[in-house]
Simulated assay, not measured.
Amino acid sequence: MNKLILVFAAAVAISCGDNKKEEKPAMQIGTQVEEAAPAQSSDSQVAEITITGNDQMKFDKSEIRVKAGQKVRLTLKHVGKMDKTVMGHNWALLTKDADMAAVGQASAVASETDYIPTDMQDKFIAYTKMLGGGETDTIEFDAPEPGTYTFMCTFPGHYALMNGKFIVE
C-alpha cells in the first residue's frame, strides 16, 4: 500500500510541475458528455467515440452514452508529451460488479501486463493498450446491456482522477 501511495504522489507531483497558464472560460457549465452519434459511414450502427488523456491525468470526458448492443469504436488519444513509463494512459471499461478501487490497486502492480491484472480479466469489458504522449489506439466492442458502467485509466494511481461513467441506454 505504501508503494501505491508513493507512486500516486510521484505522479501528482510530476503532473503539477507544469507552470504554463491554461486559458479557461470565465464560467463552465456542466461537464463534457459525448453522445454516441451514428457514424457517417455505410455502417450507421457504429458509435464513434474519441476521448483524450493528458499529462495532467485528465480525460476530456466524464460521461459517454451509447445504445445497448451498439458497436462502439473508441479512440483514445494521449495528447500529452510524457512517455508511457512516466505518464501512461489507457481506457478501460469495467463490468457493473467491478470495484474501481480494487481494480486500480491490482492494476498498479501489473506492469508486466500493461497494468491490466491477469487475475481480474473478468472485471473488464474492453480496454485500449497503454499509451505514451502523442500515441493513439482504437478499439471496437459491443455495448453491454443497459446500465451505468465505470471507465478508468489503469496506470498506477490514475484511476482516482481519470474515470467516468459509460451509460448504456
Rank of each mutant, 00 (worst) to 15 (best):
A26W: 08
D18S: 07
K165H: 07
G147F: 04
E169S: 15
D142C: 06
P117H: 04
I51S: 00
P144T: 02
D114S: 14
E135D: 10
A13Q: 08
P146E: 11
L161F: 14
N19G: 13
I64S: 03
V33L: 03
Q105G: 08
Y115G: 01
D142N: 14
V12W: 03
L4V: 13
K20I: 10
G88A: 11
V72P: 00
N54K: 12
G147K: 02
V7Q: 15
E140Q: 12
Q70A: 06
I139K: 06
T52Y: 04
S62Y: 08
Y149L: 04
C16S: 14
T136K: 11
S44G: 08
I5M: 07
P156L: 00
I5S: 10
T50I: 11
V79E: 14
L131P: 03
K81F: 08
C153K: 02
V72M: 01
K129F: 05
T113V: 01
T128S: 10
A160W: 10
V103T: 03
Y149W: 06
E112Y: 01
A10H: 07
M162K: 06
E63Y: 08
I29V: 14
Q40E: 13
M130V: 11
L4M: 12
T31K: 09
Q105N: 10
L76F: 02
F8C: 13
S62Q: 14
V109P: 01
G157S: 07
I116D: 00
I29N: 10
E169M: 07
H158W: 12
A101L: 10
C153W: 01
T118Y: 05
A92R: 02
Y159D: 13
T150I: 12
L131M: 04
K58H: 09
C153N: 08
L94E: 04
G132I: 00
L74C: 00
H158T: 10
A110Y: 01
F155Y: 14
I167Q: 06
V46S: 06
K96T: 06
P25N: 13
T85A: 14
I49E: 04
K3C: 10
I51P: 00
F124C: 07
M82Q: 15
H89C: 07
M27F: 15
D137I: 01
D55F: 03
M57F: 08
A37Q: 15
E112G: 01
S111G: 13
K84R: 15
T50H: 14
T148K: 03
K58R: 14
K77R: 11
K129T: 10
T50G: 04
N163Q: 14
L76M: 04
Y149K: 05
I49G: 05
L131E: 02
G69A: 06
M152F: 04
P144F: 01
I139Q: 06
S44E: 13
L131T: 04
G17T: 05
K24L: 14
Q45Y: 08
Q70H: 05
K129G: 12
G17S: 13
T75S: 08
G17E: 04
A39D: 15
L131H: 02
Q28K: 15
K61R: 12
P25W: 06
V7H: 12
P38A: 09
D119V: 12
A106T: 04
I29M: 11
Q70V: 02
P117Q: 01
E23F: 12
G133C: 03
T31H: 08
